[in-house]
Design a binder for these strands. Sequence first.
DNA 1: AATTGCACCGACCACTTAGTCGGTAAAAAT
DNA 2: ATTTTTACCGACTAAGTGGTCGGTGCAATT
Lengths: 204, 204
Amino acid sequence: MDKNLKRMATMHRMQVTGLELFYEQGYYNTSVDDILKSLELSKGAFYYHFQSKEDFFISIIQNLIVQKVYGTLIEPIEGKENPLTVIEKCLDNSLQTAENNEMDYGFVVHNFLTEFNGRNETISRYLRDILKIWEVNLITLLQKGKTDGYVIRHVNSEAAASFIISSYMGIRTLMVEGNPRILRYNYISQLRSYLNTMVQRELA
Amino acid sequence: MDKNLKRMATMHRMQVTGLELFYEQGYYNTSVDDILKSLELSKGAFYYHFQSKEDFFISIIQNLIVQKVYGTLIEPIEGKENPLTVIEKCLDNSLQTAENNEMDYGFVVHNFLTEFNGRNETISRYLRDILKIWEVNLITLLQKGKTDGYVIRHVNSEAAASFIISSYMGIRTLMVEGNPRILRYNYISQLRSYLNTMVQRELA
DNA sequence: AATTGCACCGACCACTTAGTCGGTAAAAAT
DNA sequence: ATTTTTACCGACTAAGTGGTCGGTGCAATT
C-alpha cells in the first residue's frame, strides 16, 4: 500500500513532466532522455515503470489527458439545462484559460491527433475516443435540449456537434500564435450567431 | 538554361517526394535518408541542392504548398460575386477532394502549423503567412459582398473569416479517420446555416 | 585535345535515439 | 538476522540522425 504510493507518485511525476514536454515539443521531437533530464531521473527508472515510450504516452493519455478533457469540456455541460448557452459558456471558459496561459500550444487532444493520425493507429484511436466522448456528450445535450424546448426539433445534432468541435479545434490552433484576445472574442461572437440558428423561440 | 532545367527538375522531384513523406509521416518523423531512399538519390545530391533539412522544407512551402492553397482556396473565391455561396462551394469542393483521396492526412498547412507552432518560428511564420493570405482574401470578399448587397452590413468580416478558417481546419482533421462522406455532408449543412445568418435579404 | 564545372555518389563523422542489463542501497518480509 | 523485493542507477548497444567531404563521370567550354 505504502509501496504503491511511492510508485504511483514517481509515475505521476514522470507523466506530468512527459505531457508537458510532449505538448510543448511534440512526441517525436521529444526524447525519453529529455524527460529524464528534466526530472533528474535515470533510464533505469523510466524503463522500470514503463515498457516503452509508446506505453508511457498511452498512460499519459489515460491518466492526464482524459481527465483534462472531462474537467474542461464534458463535466461543465453534462446534464445542464439550456444546451446553447451552456456550450457557449463552456467553450468561452476554455478559450479564456488558453488565452491566459503563456505556454499554450493549442488543444492537446487535437495536436496529438494531428501528430499520430494515420501514423500510429493505437494512439490515434485513444485520442479519437476522447473526442468521441465529447461528441456523444454534445449530441446528448442537444437532443435533451429539443425535448426541453430549447433547441429547434429539425436540428441535426450530430452535424452540430462535429461543427462545434471542428471550429473549437481550429480556433485553438489559430490562437497559439495569433492575438488570442481578439480571436477568442471574435470566435465566440460567431459561435453565438451560429448557435442562435438553433434556438427554439418561445411560443407566444 | 538547359542546365538550369535539369537542376530545377531534380529539385522539384525532391520537393514533391519530400512533401509527400513529410505530409504522411510528419517533419520530425521523416528523415532525409527516408526521402533519399524513396528517390534513389544520395546524400550528396540532397546537400548539393539544399543547405539543410529546414531549408529544404521552406522551399517546399514556397514552391508547392503556397500554390496548392492558392489553387484550392484562394483563386476559386477571388473577386467572385456572392461571397456566401462561393465560400460554401469552394470549401465543399476542397472537402470532396479530401474525401476522394485515399491518402488524406488533413489540411497540409494546418498539420505543419501544429507541428511547428512554438517550436520553429521561421517555419511557422511561413505557414501563418499562408493562412493570413487566405484570411485577407476571405475578409475582402465579405466586405465586397456588403457593398454588393449580398452580406448584411453589421457582419464582422474578420470574425467570420477566422471562424470559417477554424471550422475548416478542424473538420479536415476529423475527416482523416472518421467517415469523410458523412462528416463533409454534415459540415456543409452547418456551414450553410452559419453563412445564412449573414445573408442580406432582398428589399421587397 | 585539354580543361572546367555541374550534378551526383557514398563513405564517413559526431551525435542522438529507444531500449537493455548488471548492479545496488534501502526497506520489507521472512 | 537473513533473504527478498522495490525503486532506481548509469554504462552500454545497435540503429538511426543531420550534415560533410573527397571523389567521379559527363557535358559544355576553351
